[in-house]
Structure formats: C-alpha cells, structure tokens
C-alpha cells in the first residue's frame, strides 16, 4: 500500500558538497504474478495470470559522505537489498537517480566496478572447487591489480581476517564462517572505496560475528572506505554504525544518528534496580513507573524519558541501603526498531 505522508521523524541531512553515495527519489517496482492456492487457481493461471506491481523501493533519498559506516535497517521485505542491488549496479531502477563515486551504478562502467563491492552474507562469488588463493589470482587479473599491491592486500586481509591456511583449501571444504571470511577477502581484494554489505554475519556463530565486526571496523579505519551495511543483528549496527537509515515498505522512515534513534522513537528510559532484599520488597515500585519485569531481586522499570533523572534520584533516596545497584539506559535497539516498524504499521492501517 502506498501512502504519501512525510517520513516519521526523518532527519533531513544537510546537503554537503562531496557525497560518495547520493540517492534521490529512487524507486523500484517489480511486476509479480500472483494466484490463489489450489489446483483450480493453478490451472486458471496457465490461461490468465493476475499481475500486480510491487513497490519494493518507493522513492528514497539520502546521502552518505566519504568514510561513513551507515546501518541500513528495515524488516524483511523493506527494500534494503533491492536498494543495495541498485546502488551496486545489479538492478536498474524504475525511477529516480543515484550516483556512487559520481558514477551512475547501473551503467556498470568498469571504473565503477573496480571501485566498489557488494558482499552478500549468504552468497558465494568464489569458485567452489578450487582454493580461494587461486580465485584471488583470477580476481587480481580481472581487476588488474599490480603484483606488489596484490601481495600487500592479501597479506593485510589475511592478517585482519586471520585466514591462515584457509585460502589453500577448496572453498567447498570450508565451514560457513570460514567461507564468509574468504568471501570478504575476495570481495575486498581490489581495495574498493565503497562496500555494500548485505547481512554479512548471517548464519555465523557469535564468535565469528564478532570477528567480522572487528574486521569491518578496522577495514574502515585503515582504508577510509565508505560502508553501507544491512543486518538483522543489532549488535552489528551498534558496533559499527554511528548513523542509521531506516526504511519500511520501501519508504525512508529515519535517517540520522543511531544514538538519536532511541530518543526520537522510544520516548522512555529503562531503570534497572538491584535490591539486597529481593523481589519481595518491590511491590511498592509501581509508583516510580511501569514495572516491566522482576527477577531475582532485579526490577526493571520503564519511565518517561523526561522524568527519568527525577525518578532515579527518588529511587536512590527512597530505597536507601536496600539498593545494591541501579542503572539508567535507553531501551535495547531491537526494541526501538520494533517500535518504529510497529508504529509505522499502525499509522498505515489507521
């Protein structure tokens, strides 16, 4: 469903002079066929197909400056991957404009393709049956990387990603996490200035997710690469992105600092109080705010953001020696994002 109101709480980013990624009113509409379930509907679809237009991306505008790491957030089907595919040059948009490093991505000029990479967490670009080191050599020739630069880049990536002997095993023999590491190396071997990362940690265990995060941060620091990252793991976003762009149903909902997202979208704070005498004493805490949970002497209270300091001070004062510990935090980012999408859905259906 299309709706035309302005993005909720969107922050209009100032137009600066040098944007690495400059997107204006970008749209992508897919024509898809649909039918009802059942044999009858299947047979009818052979004769007559019902098609409808799906606005995967419904006119988004944003800019990213050189060296930024931006989180691109949205629920499944929000249009994140479609946007990345357009910005990398895989898809032609239905309307709108985009420039990345001054290139129009979907023209796929060689100079542009040498300057960017698209890494998708669940896809492989390496030759399955040979060691990654051999694929690296092929990529060296395709990207025309001088030998000295190639050796230095491989050395750096091997060190950062702790590749070790992995590059000498056939790719098909690597675990998912190991394969993702060599995929990263292959995708970055030409030292791209812009990297589009689509769910780079999907399916990886906690330790490997953390390693990939450290790598992306370090790569950005060392090379000054501009990175646009999608992830359903908020830890990725919190660890890497100072700025986030939130889209839903193809429309931009928020573009601004991650730190401000909670303030704008979740007007409350979470006070967590740990009590020496346990949960039994917490019955009277409702007066301070909404008690969200009580477990083993730890009480979590939600309070309006603007009264949080006063309520915290009162708690400390009133509880006195019963209080073992207290903290005041923004709600978890997952909760904030969920609230953004929920409030958007409510608005649309209203």
């Amino acid at each position: 469903m299309m709706h035309s109101r302005a993005p909720v709480n969107a922050v209009i980013m100032p137009r600066m002079t040098e944007a690495v990624v400059d997107v204006r009113e970008l749209r992508k509409t897919f024509r898809v066929s649909e039918r009802e379930e059942g044999l009858g509907a299947t047979l009818r679809s052979f004769v007559s197909r019902h098609r409808k237009d799906v606005n995967a991306v419904a006119g988004i505008t944003f800019r990213i400056e050189a060296g930024e790491v931006v989180g691109f957030l949205g629920p499944n089907g929000a249009g994140k991957t479609t946007t990345l595919k357009m910005l990398s040059g895989l898809l032609h948009p239905t309307a709108g404009e985009a420039r990345v490093l001054e290139y129009v991505p979907w023209r796929r000029e060689n100079a542009y393709l040498k300057s960017m990479t698209l890494l998708m967490g669940n896809r492989t670009q390496l030759v399955w049956d040979i060691p990654a080191a051999d694929s690296f050599r092929v990529l060296q020739e395709i990207y025309r990387i001088p030998e000295e630069q190639f050796r230095a880049t491989v050395k750096e990536l091997t060190e950062l990603l702790e590749l070790g002997e992995l590059v000498h095993k056939p790719v098909r023999n690597l675990s998912l996490g190991e394969r993702m590491k060599v995929e990263f190396a292959a995708g970055l071997i030409h030292s791209p200035r812009v990297a589009f990362l689509d769910e780079p940690t999907i399916g990886l265990d906690i330790s490997m997710q953390s390693r990939i995060r450290r790598f992306v941060a370090e790569y950005n620091r060392r090379n000054g690469a501009t990175i646009l990252l999608t992830s359903h793991y908020m830890d990725d976003v919190v660890a890497l992105c100072k700025r986030v762009i939130v889209i839903h149903r193809g429309r931009l909902l928020y573009d601004g600092p991650l730190a401000d997202l909670a303030e704008r979208m979740a007007p409350y704070k979470i006070i967590t109080a740990t009590l020496h005498d346990g949960a039994a004493s917490s019955a009277d805490l409702d007066a301070y705010g909404t008690v969200v949970s009580r477990e083993e002497g730890r009480v979590t209270i939600r309070v309006d953001r603007h009264v949080a300091p006063e309520r915290t001070a009162r708690l400390v004062n009133d509880l006195g020696d019963r209080l073992a510990d207290i903290s005041v935090e923004d709600p978890p980012i997952e909760e904030v994002i969920d609230r953004v999408f929920t409030s958007e859905q409510t608005t649309v259906s209203a």
Binding site: G89, L90, R108, L113, K114, R123, T124, Q125, Y143
Partner: peptide, 9 residues
C-alpha cells in the same frame, strides 16, 4: 550466482 559476475569489470 550470476550476480557476482555482473559486478566484475
């Protein structure tokens, strides 16, 4: 698997 090929020079 075709997409990576389209994104190389």
């Amino acid at each position: 698997r075709f997409s990576p090929k389209l994104l190389r020079p």
